[in-house]
Amino acid sequence: MIDRIRAGVTRWTVTVPLLALVALALTWGRSLPGAAVAVVAAFLAGAVLAAVHHAEVIAHRVGEPFGSLVLAVAVTIIEVALIVTLMAGAPVKNATLARDTVFAAVMITCNGILGLSILLTALRHRIAVFNAEGTGAAFATIATLATLSLVLPTFTTSTPGPQFNTAQLTFAAVASLGLYGLFVATQTLRHRDYFLQVTAEGELLDEDDHGELPSSRTALTSLGLLAVALVAVVGLAKVVSPTIESAVADAGLPASVVGVVIALLVLLPETIAALRAAAGNRVQTSLNLALGSALASIGLTVPAVAVASLWLSGPLVLGLGPTHMVLLALTVAIGTLTVIPRRATPLQGAVHLSVLAAYLVLAVSP
């Protein structure tokens, strides 16, 4: 009976990404009625769940922190493609899309995913224990990248508005890519143990002890299906984006809400994977997913839009406004205080979630 259930799950996680890709091919570039949008949304949800399953198979095979890195980078690469595609379609209208989406990703990951993971783990196991060295390094890198790429453009004077000139944008792109590459090398090579789960006594848990390792063939198959599922997720998000934009406009909401919705959609796989890891008392995996996604979002998006700006005719607005800079500073401050003790209670999780709630409220009602 158990084998039948497993076989059914395996067939489902293979079939749904392929069907979602077919749905993407049939709907790409077309104006859809409401019923068709609902069908696309169903395929989108199925592709998200399939992506989480295949990401967990890969993570189980390669171990931490490589598994978290695979999902974070894969999602972000396709997210960047979505942002550049939308900007190319309407360069002037979407001049702030990259900034809005990246900042939304930072708020969702550093406050939402992180806060929920800590809250869930601490409620189940009294406290959430994690490795402060790796988590602190990730937070420091996020703070630096966000400041260089999203805060400084607001204060530069060589170009009107919150924009970089060519030299400044080149520096921000190179610095972002360089710091992200150095972080990945630190996470996977020189100091991999800083990103592994620890016990309450501070001992490393380097081995997976929750099931037999999948074979190399199974892991490679999941890697391919993960790519298919993520292409479908972001592609179908692009398909429903006109409906999202119309709904946002009809509701009288700021255009930046579109970036928030896009970030919420593309971060669904990481969110679900992080919460499942937290439920299993593997909060370090959850933090690796959350902070790794934030780092990848900034470290890959800024260089990509910098290159894209060479042929895009519209402006590229990266600078944050005063309200968002305050929220970013608050996120860095409370994140630092959360990381230093190496353990957290439900209170810390709730504090992070309150900052995310404030961001969402101010996004709807600035």
Rank of each mutant, 00 (worst) to 15 (best):
L300P: 12
Q284G: 08
P153I: 04
P17Q: 00
A294H: 10
T157I: 05
M87V: 04
S297E: 12
S313P: 05
A47N: 02
F155M: 00
A304E: 12
V80W: 06
T186P: 00
L328W: 14
S176M: 08
V261Q: 13
I113E: 14
L120W: 01
V307H: 00
L362K: 15
R6W: 15
S365A: 07
T331S: 09
R342C: 07
P346I: 01
A88E: 15
V16C: 09
L21W: 04
P341L: 00
G252Q: 11
L18G: 03
G299C: 07
A38K: 00
S365L: 13
R61A: 06
N288H: 07
F103N: 06
A138F: 10
T336P: 09
L182T: 05
T157Y: 06
Q187N: 03
L26N: 03
G8S: 04
T336I: 07
G314P: 15
V339W: 06
G280A: 13
S31C: 00
L152K: 00
A42D: 09
V317C: 03
V248W: 14
V339N: 10
G314D: 14
S31T: 14
L264E: 14
G299K: 09
L267H: 15
L179I: 02
A237C: 11
V70G: 01
I118H: 05
P322A: 00
A185H: 05
L82S: 15
L225H: 13
D208H: 12
R61S: 05
G134N: 10
L295S: 12
L213W: 11
L69T: 12
A273W: 01
L213K: 14
A45M: 09
G299S: 11
L328P: 03
I127A: 07
A146D: 02
V57I: 14
E203K: 09
E64M: 08
A55P: 06
H191C: 04
R276T: 11
L328C: 01
S313G: 15
L21C: 05
V361Y: 13
I78K: 08
L300N: 07
L295F: 07
L71E: 03
S309D: 13
G349F: 03
I127S: 10
S246T: 15
V52T: 04
P322R: 03
V39W: 14
V75C: 01
T170F: 11
T141R: 03
V80I: 08
L145I: 04
V261C: 07
A251R: 05
E207P: 03
V52P: 08
S309W: 11
L120Q: 08
T154E: 13
G134T: 08
A344K: 02
